[in-house]
Computed example of a mutant assay.
Amino acid sequence: MSNQVVISKFGESKEAYSIDILKQLIREANSLDDITKAKRYICSYFILCSNPHGVFMWRPDIKNFEHIPMKNISMLICLITKTFFKQSNSEQIPTKIKFNIAKWFIYDNSSTCVATCDSAKQRIYKI
């Protein structure tokens, strides 16, 4: 994979989600600011949903969203942790900060949706 990863907005990616790309983005991050690429990558494929409770995953292969129960999300967003050291002006010893992408996505990420349908639109059924 090249160093240039194009990160789409949620539901716009044409490439399948890859845990390996996520791991690489986290591995390449040298600071908490650098971890933004990994956060944006996750958010281009996943969004928390309050009703029904869980996560919607963008699936470019079927050009649709898949609902994943919260208990199953750890299979797709691994508990990948990276430790960063942040230098403080007043202290000589850098502060150790552990970043976990799954915990960030579930607890700190503020993007949430509610699944709705438009009752005025025509229904389409797959048989």
Rank of each mutant, 00 (worst) to 15 (best):
M1N: 12
S2D: 13
S2Y: 08
S2I: 00
V5H: 02
V6G: 07
V6N: 14
I7V: 05
S8G: 06
S8L: 07
S8E: 06
K9R: 13
K9Y: 15
G11C: 05
E12R: 06
E12Y: 12
E15N: 05
E15T: 07
Y17N: 00
D20Q: 15
I21N: 06
I21D: 06
I21L: 05
I21A: 08
L22G: 02
K23N: 11
K23Q: 10
K23M: 10
K23V: 06
K23R: 11
K23E: 11
K23Y: 05
Q24G: 11
Q24N: 10
I26S: 04
R27Q: 15
E28C: 09
E28F: 11
A29P: 10
N30L: 04
S31R: 11
L32D: 02
L32C: 01
D34A: 04
K37H: 14
A38N: 03
A38M: 02
K39L: 05
K39Q: 06
R40L: 14
R40T: 08
C43W: 04
Y45Q: 03
I47E: 09
C49S: 12
S50H: 09
P52H: 08
H53M: 08
V55M: 02
F56W: 04
M57D: 04
M57P: 01
W58T: 05
W58K: 01
W58I: 02
P60W: 01
P60G: 00
P60A: 01
P60H: 02
D61K: 06
K63T: 09
E66I: 14
E66K: 06
E66N: 07
H67W: 08
H67R: 10
I68T: 01
I68K: 02
I68E: 00
P69N: 05
M70A: 07
M70Q: 13
M70N: 15
K71H: 15
I73V: 07
S74F: 09
M75T: 09
M75H: 13
M75I: 06
C78T: 11
C78V: 05
C78P: 05
C78R: 14
L79T: 12
I80P: 03
I80K: 08
T81P: 05
K82G: 05
K82E: 00
T83L: 10
T83D: 09
F84N: 07
F85Y: 14
F85C: 06
F85G: 02
S88E: 09
N89V: 10
N89K: 15
E91G: 04
Q92V: 07
I93W: 12
I93C: 08
P94I: 01
T95E: 15
K96I: 00
K96R: 11
I97L: 13
K98Y: 07
K98C: 13
K98A: 12
N100D: 09
N100V: 01
A102P: 06
A102L: 15
A102G: 01
K103S: 13
K103F: 13
K103Y: 14
W104C: 03
F105E: 02
I106G: 00
I106L: 13
I106W: 08
Y107H: 13
D108N: 13
D108P: 09
S110N: 08
C113E: 15
C113M: 14
C113H: 11
V114G: 05
V114S: 09
A115C: 12
T116G: 11
T116S: 11
T116P: 01
T116H: 03
C117V: 05
S119C: 11
K121G: 00
R123E: 14
R123M: 14
R123I: 09
I124M: 11
Y125T: 03
Y125A: 10
